[in-house]
Design a protein around this nucleic acid. Structure first.
Lengths: 245, 245
DNA sequence: GCTTGCTGTTTTGTATACAATTGATTTAAG
DNA sequence: CTTAAATCAATTGTATACAAAACAGCAAGC
């Protein structure tokens, strides 16, 4: 209602490569804002407000929101707007279980295909992880931890699986925000677990690698408190019989 | 206090996606048109033309196209429009390989969870499949064959995996259009394979079920001719020697 | 006092207008 | 006749205007 500032200066903006359209930038901003927990689950994402913030029209914002919605980190309700996803315990369990399925396949392929360079890269990532824990940079560690799994997917070399795992890893971050419980100390051991996995990959010990990966994901699941706060949707389950009649 | 969460929506659209808006209809039309091969790979999907056909503005069409693009059955090129995907041989291999990973996980879970009713449903689907083969309704059979795998995913009960498999199955259809080779007769045996899988599921013989499912997908892959017609890039390979001299 | 129905405001859904980019045709030069 | 540049047409990207739906506040009735 205040400034209708037309950003006419778009014509002479940074000499950036025109290749990509501007929405990629906005998408990246919002995506990382959600993953880094600067936008918490349940936050309403108003089209108008976001348009103001990024100085673009709602058209562009809507496109970005739809993309985020398809990746499940945002949920769009008809005529009522977009919100940062609040995964239910059931959804959370599905995501973790899906990761077990996908990452078992990935780790098997990695064990077969890994090169010496791959191992070096993974070990480099591990060092960064350790560093971020040491410096107590929690949100950075969350990102790095996810990157480790995605790096394995890259080595496996299946683009489709990599894309899917990326979705799952994103959702895992959201889930951790909502359901992380007790022992934070435990999380640091995750770093050791990554190290053990690298070792099994290096040794091309498929059985051990798979076992470690499964245990790793299960450990991640056990850190969560998925039983307490089943959301409001329960109400609808409870009353659906009555309402349906 | 306990947030005014918009879960009311769930009551209205019965659990499934956002929906309620007219674009779902258009999406379904285009999706099935692609899968049933009425739109072949490479076809240009002009926003204007589609808008004319469905009597809506480009706004709605763009939304649908983006959704299809995210599901990989349509590919959008910046400033140049949307086209029905033409999966490359590499992409095709990735999709089939991803299916092996995902469906192994699914079949294992199905073997554990299946109820008597599940078995009956699967057998019902099998009959329909056999019928469509008998009647030589090829495109119907393709759809039913995909539905069988998706039914298994439903029984496994993991929404995330089901959604992903749905994408993979769609892509598989597109791939078959592009790369199906020789022996069409072979495909009918697929129906027997489905029957064998049901039997292993019924008997809760996990090992056999997994083995059969893997063999089934591999058989599907072998029906394809993924080596011959590497897309246009081949031309460049072919002429690069000449042009380079 | 609590619920119920109405009205006004806010926010999303869709259509349309305009700008920018692509590619195709034409035209001119070698 | 071939090649290359320049203009033109067609299509997509973005902004904005208008329509419809949802939410909130207020008033009326029980």
């Amino acid at each position: 209602m205040t400034q209708i500032t037309p950003v006419v200066e778009l014509g002479r903006d940074q000499g950036r490569a025109k290749s990509g359209n501007q929405d990629d930038h906005i998408y990246a901003q919002m995506f990382s804002a959600i993953l880094e927990q600067r936008l918490s689950p349940g936050t309403k994402l108003s089209e108008d407000v976001l348009g103001e913030i990024f100085k673009v029209s709602r058209t562009v914002i809507r496109k970005v929101l739809q993309r985020l919605a398809h990746e499940k980190v945002v949920k769009i309700f008809s005529n009522r707007g977009a919100y940062v996803s609040e995964p239910t315990p059931d959804e959370a369990r599905d995501v973790l279980d899906a990761r077990k399925v996908v990452e078992e396949g990935i780790i098997r392929r990695v064990v077969k295909k890994r090169s010496a360079a791959d191992i070096r890269m993974l070990e480099g990532m591990l060092k960064e992880e350790a560093l971020s824990i040491e410096r107590d940079e929690h949100s950075k560690w969350v990102a790095l931890s996810g990157d480790f799994h995605l790096a394995l997917a890259d080595i496996a070399g299946n683009q489709s699986l990599t894309d899917y795992l990326r979705e799952l890893v994103s959702m895992t971050s959201l889930i951790h925000v909502q359901y992380q419980s007790k022992k934070i100390g435990n999380q640091s051991c995750s770093c050791e677990e990554h190290g053990d996995i690298i070792e099994a990959v290096r040794a091309q010990d498929e059985g051990t690698a798979v076992r470690l990966m499964m245990a790793h994901i299960e450990a991640c699941e056990e850190e969560l408190n998925l039983d307490g706060k089943e959301p409001i949707s329960d109400l609808y389950k409870i009353f659906s019989d009555v309402a349906g009649s």
